[in-house]
Every structure is written in C-alpha cells, then in structure tokens.
Amino acid sequence: MTQPTHLTRRFFLQTSAAGAALGAVGGPALAAGATAVNFQLSWLHSVQFGGSYLAARNGYWSDLGLDVSLSQGGPNAPVEPPVVSGAALVGISAADYTASAVSQGAPFKIIAVAMQKNPFAIASLSKNPVNTPKDLLGKRIGMAVANTPVLQALCTLNDIDINEIEIVPTQYDPAPLVSGQVDCLLSWETDLPVAMTVQGVENTTMLMADYGYALHSQTYIATEDALANRRADLVALLKGEVMGWNDYVADTDAAAALAVDMFPDAGLNLEAQKLQAARQVPLMFTDLTDAHGFGWFTDETIAANVETLALLGQDVSPDLWDRSLLEEVHG
C-alpha cells in the first residue's frame, strides 16, 4: 500500500474519493470555491471506473471547479434511488435499467455512454466451450432468474429456442461453473472470466454484443431537473470523465495500478485489474468514439438500443437519450 506522503492538491482529491466512507466532502485546501458533487458508481471500486480515478488523481475535476466524491455501489446499493433523490448528481447505470426506472416514474436521461458494447457474455470452460449461441442448446446456464429476458433476447436474435437451455438460478460467482454445477454462466466479459483466468481456470467467452445484443452499458444518468438546473456541473463532470478515460486508454496498466493504489482497503488484485482494464477497452473505445470522442452516441446506436429493449419487453422512446451535454463537452 502506498500512502501519499506529501500534501498536494491531488492528495486531498484522492482522500476525498477514497475517504468518502468517513463522510469527508473534499479536503480543506480544496473546499474553497469548488462545488461538491456526488458521483454514484454502479459497483465496488475497481478499474471498471479507472477513467474516473484518473480524472480525480490528475486534478481534471478540480481544475473545472468540482469536488467530486466517488460513491461506490454494491449488491445492495442500487444507483437509481440516490440519483432520483438528488443525493447523487450523476449515476452509472445501463440502458435497460434506466428504461425500467423511467417507466416507474424516474425522470432520468442518459447523458453519455461509457460502454458502447454491452459487456454481457456467456462464459464457459474451454474444455466445454460456448462459442456461438447455437452451442447453448442443451446446456445448463447459471444466471440470476431476473436476467431471463436477456437470455430470451439473445435467443430471439439468433433464432434458437430458449426452452432447450436449462436455466439454473445461481449467485453471481464463478464457483458454480468451476465446480461443474452448470456448463456456462451469464456474466460480464470483464469480471468473472477475468477472475477465472487469473486463477488459472481456462475459459472462453462469447460476447453477446457480437450476436446482435445492442445495449448501452455503464451509461451516465442524471435527472431532468439536474439537466435544467445544474448543467454547468454536469458538463464539467463529463469533461473530466472524458479526459480521464482518454488517459486510461493510453495506459491501462497505469489505470489498474492507480485503482489498486487509491483503494488499499478494497482488496484489489493488480494482475486481475490489469487484465480487466485491458479487456474493457474494446467495449468502450470503438470507431464511433474514435470519430466523436468518449461517451458518444448517435441516432443509429439509439435506434439499435430501442430495438433490443423492445426484445426485452420494454417500449422505450429515443427521448431517453440526451446528447446535448456531450455536444458541449466535445464541441
């Protein structure tokens, strides 16, 4: 564990993020003039949010007059409640989650998209691999029953019968696959397979995005109220994010090292973080972002998302996305 030894601006920034658990809202040196902003992440700290850590560490946000607290998520820390209630200005969600929340009355907009490609994948052991959707037939898949619509959508997209797949309800954990309780898992490309690789379990993944499952993930959401009244803060936050993620893609190993360094209590494994950092690059950086910048989306990608959401049983209007902030950021 490296502890900062000198009192720099960055040190305070770092402690305000890492030390959010102590209720610290920014350090004293920074408090003057900076606007405190709470940014609700969707999961526990890891390099999944590496770009945000770089934005914090490199002072991008403080230069823009923001004092950002990064609140981590968890299995029982849904993103939507703090964003709806104003406890967080921006949250990390996913298009399907956001659409559901909106249908339940939450006034959300998707203001940027970190993962252009959906990270959902079918993970299997290399000795019994699932390489294409057809390979799923006759297999036992471990997943949360709540995700059945996701599998159904994949089946519909690839014209296979979901009834020929045996769904086994499991916790989100590679153990059922490794112990042979199931043949494959519905998981993210970037977490459980990485863990198995690091532990020496040879595995194969099939990215659902490669088989028609077009759904934005790790999306930035904010309320309509925030869009109307805290526009400058939102733009500044996104600007910092874009700069941070640009640093991230330039050196993913450094981002992994930073995540391990910033959160000594998180129990992060550097090797796994490096692998995860590298593996999420193709999901986040595509031709589209090369052309327009990090976080971008177009009417076409929105239309593809609306189609996938329809398969998931959600009737969503393209109004759910609002690009005006990104246009300001990149403009």
């Binding site: 658990a21 526990l44 700290h45 968890g74 820390a77 863990a195 379990v201 209590d265 998180a266 129990g267």
Partner: peptide
C-alpha cells in the same frame, strides 16, 4: 457485514464479496 453491501468502502463484507467473485478461494 451485510450492511457493507450498501456501498461501504471497507470491511470484511466488501472483501468477501470481492473474493467470491474473484474466485479467490
């Protein structure tokens, strides 16, 4: 420990979660 699942920064619950997902037996 279970309270840590609501987004706590540190503690045995957080580590347990990480260890289970990371297959760190």
């Amino acid at each position: 420990m279970i309270g840590e699942f609501t987004g706590a920064e540190r503690g045995l619950g957080v580590l347990t979660l990480r260890a289970m997902r990371g297959l760190e037996t």
